[in-house]
Design a binder for these strands. Structure first.
Lengths: 213, 213
DNA sequence: GGCGCCGAAATTGTCGACAATCGCGCTAGC
DNA sequence: GCTAGCGCGATTGTCGACAATTTCGGCGCC
């Protein structure tokens, strides 16, 4: 536990800890002791405590009463549950995005489509980044705060499994056409198809997770 | 703000405040001042504070930094968003329930089906209670903790609008057949139909909410 | 030699006090 | 009479200390 930040104010503390968890700086199931974190980040224990409380509500840390907090480990079964939920929610967002998208949005997606196809064959880091950008833009265009806020939480929880999958050999070749299909459905302003393609894509992710364990 | 409970321990405080909010004891947009609540419930301000923090994470109270907490008012547009999300999630649960249901579960649902049809024509309170029970049983049978925990949060937020709608004249006559259709799909062990019927039902609720405002 | 009880260390939960911030009314100046 | 700036009351944010709880190790007893 390296004290990378000597003094951190409380407002940032939640973010700092969240980043540390999702980036894997803290190992799953690692205990998060309030006094230690307090010393490491130079904040008072009360500040650490509220930060842990928020992260507990986000599902990133487990908090057992009187027994402290630890980094929540997401088992495979739950990662799949999360993806099942995302099928419903991202399907909804894709459908809304197909309704809302503007002409300039369509142009933007056309460029994204080309870039994704290119990167999927050459640069997996870039490909992964573009996929995230696609997802983010779909959510922005969907204009559905309720769904988006839930998705954001779920994404943080599943990030470890997602990451593992992203660089699995041959995965990009499968997922790239699925992303393209989603883009095409949205730019055609076809909500039902956008939803179906999104669900199909996430279904394929579930399949992949199941097989590679 | 009547101090109905002279001394309340912190563990219960979150629950007490949550119940007070969803039951309408606190008006929407009402300010929740830490010192006042502390005095009213006989707990320390720190305990009140953590309770408010949790309720904030649940979306039941708005917390603006340095400006305190207030009961979150859910506008109609957001109530509809919540129902749209529930379409995805309850559809998923219904689908899983159709896969998981046992023989004894089928028998239980058959009885529930009859009771719902009866109550829908005579006793709206009982009808509303049975509907809630049906929803709860579907969630239990679905065995999908991730979806269920999200649904529980959303239900608490939307409860006011739901309640208003439940006793709208003629509403029961519309919703009862929809509930029956959901039951029939689940007891037929037909996941796709269970999902479709559930989504149709919630779609009908959205329609109703839109028209009665 | 193993099992259960007691006690100490570690850790979380709670409290009251102090500091920081925000909103509002009041005054002064034009 | 109106506006800008100041200061005060109200409320939240932060802190350190104390109390309560759990966990782990040692000791005695069977």
């Amino acid at each position: 536990m390296t004290a990378v930040t000597p003094t951190a104010t409380r407002a940032d503390l939640t973010k700092i800890l969240r980043d540390a968890i999702v980036s894997g700086e803290f190992a799953p199931n690692q205990r998060l002791i309030e006094a230690d974190l307090s010393a490491a980040y130079g904040a008072s224990r009360a500040s650490v405590r509220t930060a842990l409380l928020e992260l507990g509500a986000e599902g990133l840390v487990d908090r057992e009463p009187n027994r402290g907090s630890r980094v929540r480990a997401i088992p495979l079964a739950e990662a799949i549950e999360i993806l099942e939920v995302r099928m419903g929610l991202e399907g909804l967002c894709a459908s809304k995005a197909a309704e809302n998208i503007t002409e300039s949005g369509i142009a933007e997606f056309a460029k994204l489509r080309a870039d994704i196809l290119t990167a999927s064959e050459s640069d997996l880091f870039e490909y992964s980044r573009l996929n995230q950008q696609l997802d983010r833009r779909i959510r922005e265009i969907a204009e559905h705060p309720t769904a988006v806020s839930i998705l954001e939480r779920l994404r943080a929880q599943g990030v470890r499994h997602q990451f593992r999958l992203a660089f699995y050999p041959g995965r990009a070749a499968v997922s790239a056409p699925e992303h393209v299909a989603i883009i095409d459905a949205i730019t055609s302003r076809d909500p039902a198809r956008a939803e179906a393609e999104t669900r199909a894509h996430l279904g394929s992710v579930i399949q992949a997770l199941r097989t590679i364990g």
